Structures are given as C-alpha cells and as structure tokens.
Amino acid sequence: MRALLGNKKGKLRIVTRLLVSVVDSAEARLALAHGADLIDAKDPDAGALGALPLASIRSIHASLPEGIVTSAVAGDDDDVERLARSALSVATTGVTFVKLGLGRAMARPTGVAALGRRLAGQGRFIAVLFADENPPLTLVAALHEAGFVGAMLDTSQKRGIRLPDLLTMDQLGSFVADCRQLGLMSGLAGSLRIEDIDRLAALNPDYLGFRGGLCLAGDRRGQLDPLAIGRAAYRLQAIRQSRQVDGEQAA
C-alpha cells in the first residue's frame, strides 16, 4: 500500500511511513496508538525474520481496527517449497502483506522465479533481501516479474550492524528508485535508529521498518518503548508536513 502526497500541479511524491514489528496483540495496539502506520507480526526470538504461530498472527490482526495495514513474516528458507508453504499459510490469516526472507540461496533469479510460480495469484507477497549477505540489488526486476508486490532490505544478523553501515546512500537510493519504477512497494529496515530517519526518508521508500530501535534499551527481544515509537512517528510526520508545505509553495 503506497501513500502519496500531491501538490496543486498534480505531482505526486512518495510518503514514507512507519513499520513497527510486534510480537502480540498488546504490542500491536501500543504501536498503533503511538503512530505506527503498518503493524508487522514477527518473532524476534526466532531470528531476523522469525515467524510467529498462525494463531498469534490472527490474534494480532483481529485486535486492530478494520483498514489498518498489517504484515506478517513467513520466515526465511533456502527451500522453495517450505518457504512457499509457510507464506501461503500466513496469507490465510488476513494480513495485508506477507514477508518472505530470501537468503543467499534464494536471492537469485532462479530462486525468485521458482517462488513466483509457486505463489502466483495466492496473495500479496513482499521479498526481503538481507544486505549483510550481499544480495544482487538488481534482483528487483526479477521480483517484479515473479509477481511480488514489494521488496525490502534488512539485515540477517542483529548484532549492531545496521543497514546504513552495509550499503551506501547511493545503493539504497538506487534500490528504492528501481522499486518505484517497477511499481513495487519498497522498504528499508535493519537495526535502524530514530536518527536514521531523516536521511533514509530522503530516499522516499514507502516504509522504514523498526523493532530494536524502538525497544527499551534497544533490545529487539525486549518490550517496545511507546515514547520511542512516538518520536519516530513524529519525525516522519514532520518530514511529511515539511514536504507538503514545500510542494504548495512550489505550486
């Protein structure tokens, strides 16, 4: 789901939104109340893209008002059939998007094509590439051809190495631009901090994804910090308002 800003001349610009990963319905309601735009169901104890039980995902989705954008992680796997089965199961929970982690073996055109054939017409799937595994960023074209609706960059190892430490702003900007050109939703995540918001939002991704950076003491396995969520949401809102004013002045 892509949000856009318009000005009097009819020009549209991407509006970057806040994705917050949650572990249960209580965290989901907390994140929403403090400004999250997309509620993402994920198990941080099970790795970078750990999948929650289907019952937990359904509970999270059911706890939110109708119309709230949601996603859930289906895990990451080097086996096409296992990953596809997991993704199709998660798609039955009612979430808006299903995220699939593509590791080294899957982050190649042949793996993407095989997944696309298995998932074709079955739901709204987003591929997650791990920047610390050196995926070919040109894979965006293959993802589009395979029927994915979006692509995200994340990190597989949550040991303090952040997405901006792994890829340059030019590389991140090219990834986002390629997604936009092909009509794919784009997202940037990977141990992000609130102070990363300004420079990453300048690249115009659809979403910036957070977990650890919005948790107490920065511990992704700990509790979400409502004050941190609010600060992140406020920062993105301030950027949106600034762009809207600039667009009206330009018009």
Rank of each mutant, 00 (worst) to 15 (best):
L119P: 02
L119Q: 06
G123K: 01
G123A: 00
R124K: 12
F125V: 15
I126H: 00
I126S: 00
A127M: 10
V128K: 01
L129P: 04
F130P: 00
A131T: 02
A131C: 08
A131R: 08
D132A: 11
N134L: 12
P136K: 01
P136T: 04
P136L: 00
L137C: 09
L137D: 10
T138F: 07
H144P: 00
H144R: 15
E145I: 06
G147K: 04
G147R: 03
F148M: 09
F148H: 07
F148V: 05
V149Y: 06
V149S: 05
G150Y: 03
A151C: 10
A151I: 08
A151E: 10
M152F: 15
M152A: 12
S156T: 15
S156I: 13
Q157F: 11
K158S: 12
R159S: 15
I161D: 09
R162E: 07
L163K: 14
P164T: 14
P164C: 15
D165W: 12
L166D: 06
L167Q: 03
T168A: 08
L172N: 04
F175P: 00
V176D: 01
D178Q: 14
D178R: 15
R180G: 09
G183Y: 10
L184F: 07
M185V: 14
S186G: 02
G187R: 07
L188I: 11
G190E: 08
G190P: 03
S191I: 12
S191F: 08
L192A: 01
L192P: 04
I194Q: 09
I197M: 05
R199Q: 15
R199N: 14
L200H: 02
L200E: 08
A201I: 04
A202I: 06
A202L: 08
L203E: 09
D206E: 02
G209V: 00
R211D: 14
G212K: 01
G212E: 08
L214V: 13
L216P: 06
A217P: 07
G218E: 13
G218I: 06
D219A: 13
R220K: 08
G222H: 10
